[in-house]
């Protein structure tokens, strides 16, 4: 720019001096130089901007596309398989049966309320709703029996059952959690594969199944039951059936639905029941000890501890990545 200015300045002076046939004074030279500088800066600045814009516009888009192609794909957060297909299908059978039983059973529990009659009518009358209730009951018994065998004969089933057994740590965890809730301590309990919340859910269903299936069968085959039981025995059975039904329904609607659906962290619902997957974030947050175990196992097997570098390879015959698949 400076050289350009110098050149124009010399040209200008030569021309003026040729015209005047005499030398230009030093003051005028300074004036000319000053004017020239401002003018060139102004005119050239605009030109430079225009040229820059034009060329950039032509180059930017193709270059952007080239870069996009060359960029490596975004590394997705690692997911862990929490629930295998077997247990997921068991859960589906379980909730289908239980919802059927609740819909056909609660109207009898609350027969005195107006909506009960509407529900029974919509189900096609009492004879129909009884049949549906018994179909639901058969489903529940089926899945309960299957699950029992699963916990006995499947390696995953045995392992999970063992991990679901209540331990002193669970009581301690409850205590720590409440302290955490109340702000007494910042420490949040670290859970293994199953937190006390999940253990409660599991054992509530276990207890519920024993009571409901036991009493339900006695009531279903009441003529047979009464060959051995006195009438008041069946009265107890009926009372247990209707009371446990309410307890189970409330536990599902309040506790389980909160923990997997309505909890702000999960809303509108965790999809683990469907996909079986749990994100790295979730497992670190909710099953920190299990996560640690998985990482330790990986390190032992010579794998990298930093799982971001590797996509988890799950052997097809392995149900979870609890790190102990063989």
């Amino acid at each position: 720019m400076a050289r350009l200015e110098k050149q124009i300045e010399e040209n200008l002076l030569t021309r003026i001096e040729a015209e005047l046939d005499g030398e230009v004074s030093e003051d005028t030279r300074v004036l000319i130089r000053e004017k020239l500088r401002v003018k060139v800066r102004q005119e050239m600045g605009e030109q430079i901007d225009r040229i820059t814009d034009e060329i950039a516009a032509g180059v930017l888009q193709p270059e952007r596309e080239r870069l996009a192609e060359e960029k490596p794909p975004v590394v997705k957060e690692e997911e862990f398989l929490r629930l295998g297909i077997n247990i997921r299908i068991q859960h589906m059978f379980l909730f289908t049966s239980v919802l059927t039983l609740i819909v056909t059973g609660l109207p009898l529990r609350f027969a005195e309320l107006g909506w009960s009659e509407t529900v029974i009518r919509l189900l096609g009358g009492i004879e129909n709703s009884r049949l549906i209730h018994r179909i639901g009951a058969s489903g529940l018994m089926g899945v309960a029996a299957y699950h029992f065998l699963y916990t006995l004969f499947s390696r995953q089933g045995r392992r999970d059952f063992f991990l679901l057994l209540p331990r002193p740590k669970d009581a301690l965890d409850v205590f720590t959690m409440i302290k955490h809730f109340l702000g007494i301590s910042e420490e949040r309990p670290k859970f293994g594969r199953f937190s006390y919340i999940e253990k409660f859910d599991y054992w509530a269903v276990y207890w519920g199944c024993v009571i409901m299936i036991g009493s339900g069968l006695l009531l279903w085959f009441q003529d047979f039951s009464l060959r051995f039981l006195p009438k008041f025995g069946l009265d107890i059975t009926k009372e247990a059936h209707r009371d446990e039904a309410l307890l189970a329904t409330l536990a599902i609607i309040i506790w389980h639905f909160y923990n997997v659906h309505l909890n702000p962290d999960k809303f509108p619902g965790s999809l683990t029941w469907l996909t079986g997957k749990i994100s790295k974030h979730e497992i670190m947050e909710e099953h920190a000890l299990e996560y640690e175990e998985i990482m330790d196992a990986r390190a032992k097997n010579g794998g990298p501890r930093n799982e971001d570098a590797c996509q988890v390879k799950t052997p097809p015959d392995c149900e979870t990545v609890s790190g102990r698949c063989d």
Binding site: Q222, D223, L226, R227, P230, K231, F232, G233, D235
Partner: peptide, 18 residues
Amino acid sequence: CHEGANINYAKGKIHVDA
């Protein structure tokens, strides 16, 4: 109505209010 009903049916209050 209840096939094979026996004396067990009489053991306990019939109109029972829990």
